[in-house]
Amino acid sequence: MDFLNALVALSNFVLIPAVAYGSQLALGALGVTLIYGILRFSNFAHGDTMAFGTMTVILFTWLFQSWGISLGPLPTALLAIPFGIAATAVLVLATDRVVYRFYRAQKAKPVVFVIVSIGVMFIYNGLTRFVLGADDQRFADGERFIINVREFRELTGLSEGLGIKTTQGITVITAVIVVAVLFWFLNSTRTGKSMRAYSDNEDLALLSGINPERVVMVTWLIVAALITVAGTLYGLDKSYKPFTYFQLLLPIFASAIVGGLGSPLGAIAGGFVIAFSEVGITYAWKKVLGYLLPESLEPSGLVQLLATEYKFAVSFIILVAVLLFRPTGLFRGKSV
């Protein structure tokens, strides 16, 4: 019984939140990795693109709510996602046209692109705050739980409860679908193959008659979709605040780099590595250990390795360790 209780507590506080968070990071990191693979720079505006995308989803959600449209038990935001993606796609394509294309024509070095993307970051940053403000926004509606703690206790008779939030369920399911479609797209369609070819050897792709502007455009469209979905899922699961999204840049980059920049598979693996480390290290293990250890060994402290406020330090330390010992990441991406 104690073992089961420990398992339930572990699932409730570590496994399920980490899987949901990992899925969100994975989607974010896929965007970073695609931009790195195709456009060959680290996009620092990624976090704020996510904030912008989520903001448009929130605005559309509110619009639909004011019209009385809802999805019943599911959050209305799911209905707003396609519109949010469209708005984000317009924004990133316009940015590419006005800003990045100029530097592509100059054949600017990647470091120039990075600095340019920091400029873009500030603009998006201001844009989001200008439209929606810097405050916390809640936009989740519908059922809150798939299973809630009390029901679970009554059902199983265990003293520990297990709660699965609807948003966590939706996060995982959506992430699986999005990743499946993305991999099918990259591996089986001609457009996806052109993208891989372009990422592999730009000169040769051009000589094969592949239009680079088209490849770049498709990449931005995919990135807009990925980032809007990731941001919306994160916002539903936790809450929406532009500054938090800017901060997510660190774990997202850490995920992409841990997995190996340029490798989509790596981005997903990296997302989960970071999420599990972050949640595991900032979780107070007292309860789980209390169930598992004999009474005499029961810890008196919280057994929390790091306070929650320092969670970003986890990404940072992993990032530094990977860059020192295996700069190409788990899946042998490009070295940074």
Partner: peptide
């Protein structure tokens, strides 16, 4: 030069660019 992660057949099939599947 070659697309190292693709097979030789796939390498040749990347030519010509601008196929309808690229849209």
């Amino acid at each position: 030069h070659e697309f190292s992660s693709m097979t030789c057949r796939e390498n040749l099939m990347m030519v010509p660019g601008g196929q309808s599947g690229e849209r």
